[in-house]
Simulated assay, not measured.
Amino acid sequence: MNPLRKDDHKMNSPWWMRFGQGLLIGLGAVLPGISGGVLCVVFGIYQPVMELLANPRLLFSRPALWKPLLPVFFGGVCGFLGVARVLSVLLDKYPAPSVCLFAGLILGMIPGLLRDAGSRGSHPRDWTCLWAAFIVTILLLTGLQLARITIVPNWFWYFFCGICAALSIIAPGLSFSTLLMPLGLYVPFLAGLSSFQAGTILPSVLGALLTVILLSRVVNHLFETKYSPAMHAMTGLVLAATLVIIPFGQMSLIALLFLAGGILAGYEMDRYNARYAV
């Protein structure tokens, strides 16, 4: 039995819930500091998605794998193109409370990730993987935030943007906005996408496709053979990436309440998902 199928019960949740999860994933794909891949892990769909990317033939041989992902896909498109515009306004006017709410949703689901990570048994080395991934991610993301580099966008750099966008799904915790912002590429990249500029879209799509083709099989094999340490490391990535985006320096009472509310909502969402376990 493929180990990736342990999360199939999460695909039994109602379509509207999976659509809502897709909305949040789409938002996470474009919002600064947030990774859509993190939310894929949190919602328990990361492994099915990676399996599908690593084995495209499953589109024909296993429709039961990809059909439950359709509401997530459509929700992701809506979140990326539509709701993200609304939320970007909220982030503009109320940045700290908005980010705190989003971060709280993720933190509230960390217990569920730990439960999944230990579902096949755990070893002390698995926790070593978790804390190693946590520390490396913290150092990487804070280093990128502190860097101040200016780059003139061109075909090569938009190709690089596509690589970063794909990595934000394949390597949860690495937000493509966090990677691009220090290089001055985030705003021109989104501007080019929103205005459908071929000089932006074509190289970025090529970079994303090559990254998916080269890395998805590696990640899929890792989960098949080393599930527990891989999932513990993934949890460390998610935790570190979430803590980094919390604006501790701008924390007001309202932002703190939004963070607490997000944690509670995320925890309840995880409990709701768990009801569909078989």
Rank of each mutant, 00 (worst) to 15 (best):
I138L: 15
A208P: 08
I110H: 00
F102W: 09
P188R: 14
I138G: 01
V205P: 08
G108M: 05
G173D: 00
V187H: 13
I170E: 12
F134S: 03
A133W: 06
L90C: 15
G121M: 14
R115N: 04
L206R: 08
F196I: 14
M109L: 07
P182N: 00
P124Q: 11
H123R: 15
I201H: 09
D116M: 01
W131R: 05
R125F: 13
L174F: 00
R115D: 02
V89K: 08
I170A: 10
L202I: 14
G112F: 08
P153L: 10
T178E: 01
P124C: 06
S177L: 12
I151V: 15
A208L: 12
G108Y: 08
W157M: 10
L185H: 07
A147W: 14
W127H: 06
G104H: 00
G199W: 05
I149Q: 04
I106G: 02
L114H: 05
S122R: 12
C100W: 13
T150R: 15
M181Y: 03
L174T: 00
I138F: 05
C129Q: 12
G79N: 06
L140Y: 01
W131H: 04
R85E: 06
A208T: 08
V86P: 02
A208I: 02
L101S: 05
F80A: 10
F176R: 12
F189E: 03
G79S: 07
G104K: 01
S168F: 08
W127P: 02
D92H: 15
G82A: 09
L146R: 10
L90N: 06
L101T: 05
L87S: 05
G118V: 01
A132R: 09
V86M: 14
G108W: 04
F80G: 02
G79T: 11
R148G: 05
